[in-house]
């Protein structure tokens, strides 16, 4: 191998893209040729320097905001899966029905526009509504996917201990045929909570216990209380997972289930200790 050949492979070698044969031959050449080996040395240095300089300096705080933003967009996409209006509407409602009459086409276009605008309002509303509860819904759905895993993490004994210690809450071990599987210490939007999971062999119910001074029931929900048998609760009963918020002493207790057969309002998992 001569100098020209060795230098033509310079960046392939630096980028580790050269074949084994080429790499070996270049190496042999460099051992004999001071000129080429000096060029290689400087180029390697320059390359390492440039790579090091462009790798660091990542604006972490912007990244966190961006991640939150992306999660929200994914939530909106998820909403769009069950309700076409929630995806913004333009793709599904943008094309007016095709008719032979231009006039009809204008009417259709106008109607489509109205639907799109109305859809956007509706989507915005759904999105806002969705947003407040989605975290809790997701935690429940994820836990409910793997109830066995949940039960092995913390035993029922530990569940009682957790509730008593951090929340002064006494859970009932068995409610309406549902059995307490276990509990976890979690955070919901940064607020400490105990997450209990109940199961009756067919479906699961999550119970989230939080301190009233640390967690606020969403105002839109708080404005619409339901009273049943002397108990007041706040019912978030829209698509997907149903959530019932209750004030129990100094605590907020949320019950969650995606199963329509479960009578969630009458499911009372325990009392303040």
């Amino acid at each position: 191998m001569n100098c020209q050949e060795a230098l033509s492979l310079l960046y392939d070698i630096i980028d580790k893209e050269a074949s084994e044969v080429d790499t070996r031959q270049v190496k042999e050449h460099l051992e004999k040729c001071g000129h080429c080996s000096e060029i290689y040395r400087v180029e390697q240095q320059v390359n390492a320097f440039l790579k090091a300089k462009c790798t660091d300096s990542n604006p972490e705080e912007r990244l966190d905001t961006l991640k939150t933003q992306v999660i929200k967009l994914l939530d909106r996409e998820d909403g769009g899966g069950t309700d076409p209006l929630a995806s913004g509407g333009d793709r599904k409602y943008g094309a007016p029905p095709i008719t032979g009459l231009t006039f009809t086409r204008y009417i259709a276009a106008a109607a489509a526009l109205v639907i799109v605008v109305w859809g956007a309002f509706l989507a915005a509303d759904l999105f806002r509504h969705h947003d407040e509860h989605f975290g809790i819904e997701r935690i429940h759905l994820a836990a409910n996917e793997q109830p066995a895993e949940f039960a092995t993490v913390e035993s029922t004994g530990r569940a009682f201990e957790l509730c008593a210690r951090s929340m002064h809450f006494a859970p009932t071990e068995s409610v309406d045929g549902f059995r307490l599987l276990g509990a976890r210490d979690i955070q919901i939007d940064g607020v400490p909570a105990v997450h209990l999971l109940y199961e009756n062999g067919k479906s699961g119910i999550s119970v989230f216990v939080m301190r009233k001074d640390q967690f606020n029931i969403p105002p839109s929900l708080k404005a619409q209380p339901t009273t049943l048998g002397g108990h007041t609760f706040y019912d978030h009963n829209c698509r997907g997972c149903r959530l019932i918020y209750r004030e129990v002493g100094d605590l907020i207790v949320i019950t969650a289930s995606e199963c329509r057969e479960v009578d969630l309002p009458s499911f009372i998992p325990g009392a303040a200790a």
Binding site: N58, P59, R62, L63, L66, K67, V70, L74, D78, G81, T82, L141, A142, E145, G240, E258, C259
Partner: peptide
């Protein structure tokens, strides 16, 4: 219910596989 399960599966898979690459995407995008 099954739709919702499938949706949740998709979401979980996406968050597991794709979201971790956002740091890299962002620095290149910058």
């Amino acid at each position: 219910m099954t739709d919702q399960k499938a949706q949740l599966e998709k979401r979980k898979a996406f968050e597991r596989e794709a979201l971790p690459h956002m740091d890299a995407l962002y620095r290149t995008a910058l």
